[in-house]
Design a protein around this nucleic acid. Structure first.
Lengths: 239, 239
DNA sequence: AGGCGGCCTGCGGGTTCCCGCAAGGGATGC
DNA sequence: GCATCCCTTGCGGGAACCCGCAGGCCGCCT
């Protein structure tokens, strides 16, 4: 067994290396990478490696790296080790896990014992290990009536990018009115309407984005990736 | 001399404690706090302490803590030790430094030697020590013609909160048209206009916020604080 | 079959946004 | 004094947004 660690913080990287060696004595080799891009390269050289990865990295995030790693080798087992359980991250991860892949999501604030269990669970027993807190936001994100559907989430991203209704309609293959219907649903679910007696206070479109950021549905990484997707779509559409 | 460390990550906290003791042998006591609120409390008990503080903390950020510490004792010397040099953070800090106070801003990625120099410079020599990278974004943020003025920045925050033109006008004591002028300036400076041949692509208002987030002019913390300010203003205005 | 709920779509109109045009102040400089 | 620059304000109009109403399609239930 070989393990690849991708983590930009030197202190955390060193500590993680120790934890991996201690939890997995059967591990022959531990390789460390200091950012997403290097992680992808190392993973390419180690076709049998398991991966432990941070999510917040500059400039390529853990999600970016995981996506390419999984695209090249969908059976790779990846343990995400992150500071936060924001819905933006949880959604980001669950969007890219290949069907059937074993993965994990453990918070950095979790105890060493929990990390140890996750390491063994994923890499040895081939099971999925998700921290309780993460599980919580995961369920919250699929609980009906409060949560946004995937279709609505897409439109939310589009307005966060600053697209017009018309542009969204073109991009998503919908009519203008359908886009607006989705927007209504988003406004309702996010509860962006101004309180009693303050009617003209909010621009609902902008307010929705604001609330989404505050509720951690959206973050800078989400936007950055969406921006890249948009650029690609926009180029393709030019011809 | 006494030093207060405010840092939520245990690894970083421990390492920082060592660095402080090594750099400042004349330091009699090192106290550690694990989040912003505790930091404020400890600072209150140590009326002579210097402070080393992380910026990203939950739920009270380093900026929140620094603000109350400085309000109670404006001469406190604070060294901010942060992962990022985002304009949002730099602006956030420079908005709250009391006139004449000695402070510092050092990146976590900087070498131990740079941290040592900063610690001695601020706490012993009473000078300001700002990392080169931070200095860079600081200058970028005040370089004319590309950068937003303070007035424009306020309006940017308002649209990021999802306010209407009318609401912004009421809040900032301006006419509707003036608000729109500020918006124009923001649109120009952020360069949000769609490329040639894609005229209806962007909703400029939303696009401006998007670009601002991508350029790190705004982040979640900025928004959170702005939201609190807005709520307070809104309550005051009700009567 | 018929009814029901969900999603998509067109129409219409009230409101808000985006912005060109133009007129009024201060502030500064020669 | 006058010119110049910057910021503010009003007016007006075209475009985009928000949204109620109503009709159509599809799958599901009894």
């Amino acid at each position: 067994m070989r393990v690849l660690i991708v983590e930009d913080d030197p202190l955390h990287r060193a500590w993680l290396g120790e934890a991996v060696r201690a939890a997995l004595p059967e591990c022959r080799e531990v390789v460390e990478a200091t950012d997403g891009a290097e992680g992808e390269a190392r993973a390419r050289e180690m076709p049998d490696a398991h991966v432990v990865m941070d999510l917040q990295m500059q400039p390529r995030t853990g999600i970016d790296a995981a996506r390419t790693i999984w695209r090249e080798r969908p059976s790779t087992r990846i343990l995400f080790w992150s500071n936060y359980s924001d819905e933006a991250y949880v959604r980001g991860v669950s969007r890219i896990v290949p069907p059937g892949a074993a993965y994990g999501y453990v918070l950095k604030s979790a105890s060493g014992e929990r990390l140890r269990l996750a390491l063994r669970g994923i890499f040895v027993e081939n099971q999925c290990v998700i921290d309780g807190e993460v599980r919580g936001t995961q369920q919250k994100s699929t609980a009906h009536a409060v949560a946004l559907s995937e279709a609505e989430y897409e439109v939310l991203i589009d307005i966060a990018l600053g697209l017009t209704d018309r542009a969204i309609a073109a991009r998503r293959g919908l009519s203008l009115r359908s886009v607006q219907n989705r927007l209504q649903a988003i406004y309702d679910k996010l509860g962006v309407h101004a309180p009693e007696g303050q009617e003209g206070l909010y621009n609902l479109r902008g307010r929705a984005v604001s609330v989404a950021v505050l509720r951690r549905l959206l973050n800078r990484n989400t936007l950055e990736r969406a921006e890249a997707d948009l650029a690609e779509w926009s180029a393709r559409r030019q011809r």
